[in-house]
């Protein structure tokens, strides 16, 4: 049932085992405190949504997880590795296990869809032949339902298509942990639901664990197993959608109105 990459560290973890532990994570920019002792545990096969207002530090959180932004303090343990202490090579190796979907999809404008999808392979899978690469690209495109877009340029795609190609590009490396930064922002509700559905399909197919940053409640409800509410740089509440919906905390409740 699981189609994990045989060589990956992620595959060595059993379902329900924690693959990511964050504790006491702090990050401030000058005098502006963004994260102030954030805690989170992600277990294998779980989708956690992080809710928070704009500028509350949600994006900073997941950037810290892959060290696109260096954290100030705190423990980030991903797949048993201490992320802040990793050297460049070990970090690159770990990053290969993580998929990161950027808010803007971050497709490379100067490359075709095919080259976009092949790009992550160039570093990590040098032994692959062109035929194998072509097959992987085709599979990834089939997964997101855009089989015939391989030779288009990103500028020729709609926003929803770009998101799907972005997902295909992250999934091509068979990552264990997916980090979604506002996956449905800027999309119409129908397309947004389509993306949510795709995220669930991917999770089912590749048995991934995900952290989903969003303030789109529809998407959160659709995709998340548990929800974390981030207020003032801390975890204010943690629970399922149904649990938090009943919360009396005004900061938490305001998201569910």
């Amino acid at each position: 049932m699981e189609s994990d990459n045989g060589n990956s560290i992620y595959a060595k973890f059993a379902n329900g085992e924690p693959v990511l532990r964050v504790s006491g994570l702090k990050k401030s920019f000058g005098t502006h405190v963004v994260l102030d002792g954030f805690d989170l545990v992600l277990t294998k096969g779980e989708n956690i949504a992080v809710l928070g207002r704009s500028g509350s530090g949600k994006s900073v959180l997941i950037r810290c997880l892959v060290r696109l932004t260096e954290s100030d303090e705190g423990i980030i343990n991903m797949l048993g590795l201490d992320v802040p202490d990793l050297g460049q090579d070990a970090l690159d190796k770990l990053r290969a296990e993580i998929g990161f979907l950027f808010q803007s999809s971050a497709l490379y404008d100067s490359m075709t869809v095919r080259e976009n999808l092949e790009f992550p392979l160039r570093r990590h899978s040098k032994h692959l032949t062109q035929a194998e690469k072509d097959q992987m690209v085709q599979e990834a495109l089939d997964n997101v339902g855009l089989s015939d877009t391989a030779d288009l340029m990103p500028s020729e795609l709609s926003g929803g298509m770009r998101k799907r190609i972005g997902i295909a590009r992250t999934m091509i490396m068979n990552p264990g942990i997916m980090l979604y930064d506002e996956p449905t922002t800027g999309l119409d509700p129908v397309t947004g639901r389509g993306i949510g559905k795709l995220m669930l399909e991917m999770k089912k197919k590749y048995n991934t664990s995900s952290i989903i940053i969003s303030h789109d409640m529809g998407c959160v409800k659709q995709t998340a197993d548990r929800i974390v509410v981030l207020v003032n740089g801390r975890c204010r509440a943690l629970g399922t959608y149904a649990e938090l919906e009943k919360s009396e905390d005004p900061d938490v409740h305001s998201f569910f109105e």
């Binding site: 690159d92 950027f102 490379y108 570093r123």
Partner: peptide
């Protein structure tokens, strides 16, 4: 302009997390 727009649209970050 090219690198600037890649930077602000997170394409450079995307490369970095993809291990390139």
């Amino acid at each position: 302009a090219e690198l600037g727009s890649m930077k602000v649209t997170e394409q450079i970050d995307a490369m970095e997390v993809s291990g390139t």
